[in-house]
Design a protein around this nucleic acid. Sequence first.
DNA 1: GTTGACCTTCACATCAATGTGAAGGTTCGA
DNA 2: TCGAACCTTCACATTGATGTGAAGGTCAAC
Lengths: 127, 127
Amino acid sequence: MRIGELSERTGTPRRLLRYYEEQGLIVADRTPNGYRTYDTASVGRVVQIRGLLDAGLPTRLIKQILPCLDKPQVIHFSDATPEMLATLECELDRMTSRIQCLTRNRDAIGAYLDAVRDNHRPQAAVG
Amino acid sequence: MRIGELSERTGTPRRLLRYYEEQGLIVADRTPNGYRTYDTASVGRVVQIRGLLDAGLPTRLIKQILPCLDKPQVIHFSDATPEMLATLECELDRMTSRIQCLTRNRDAIGAYLDAVRDNHRPQAAVG
DNA sequence: GTTGACCTTCACATCAATGTGAAGGTTCGA
DNA sequence: TCGAACCTTCACATTGATGTGAAGGTCAAC
């Protein structure tokens, strides 16, 4: 598919698809006339990229992380330098912290909303 | 405490503490000479703000969310407009999505790191 | 063969979060 | 009384993720 279709399927502006390519997050073949073409796997990849971006990871890290997730079983150890492993290890911890922080606050928001709902039907004390 | 101490205690540049105040995320009293002063509760609050920022939430939303978390039991329903509740509801869903995405990817990274470790001791096939 | 919907690159603009520094006031200790 | 270490506001710079538009090539359809 070409960039327009990928854009529609992922809800991502073309501009950003080109940006992600420039950042090395996705790759695109080119038709003889220079148009980018993508395979269907790109859809999931872009969605994942957007999720990670939305979760606060910078493209630089996403670029490092993605290769660990693509290959279902086959893992390329060749490009796993000690520095990169350390980076990943560190990032793993930071992601865990992020998850905890998000979970804590989401639960608090949920509790707040529940409280508001419980408090709008019956007439109870209000601050 | 003054801004320098809060900065040290939270590992946050003074510049950002002023920025968070400007964005309405924290408040500061002023001494007669104009210096900002903070109570000890500010430390936790700033840490929480940083966590949420790191998790990808913009200050605009953090400002809306924080009031739901401060008050331990006492909840101010007065300032809970329907729009804000809808916003929170929506943001709750987005946070859940973020958490799922982060968890999925963190687990994948963990699996990758485990695989690399398992593969560095014994000599196994490598791609 | 022209129109319209694609696509290309290039480039400048924006926004939020942050860095950095200037110019100056306060406080405290040598 | 001077200097160091705070603090203030103001303001411009930067970075990453985006928006937007210009100038132009491709191609299918009419």
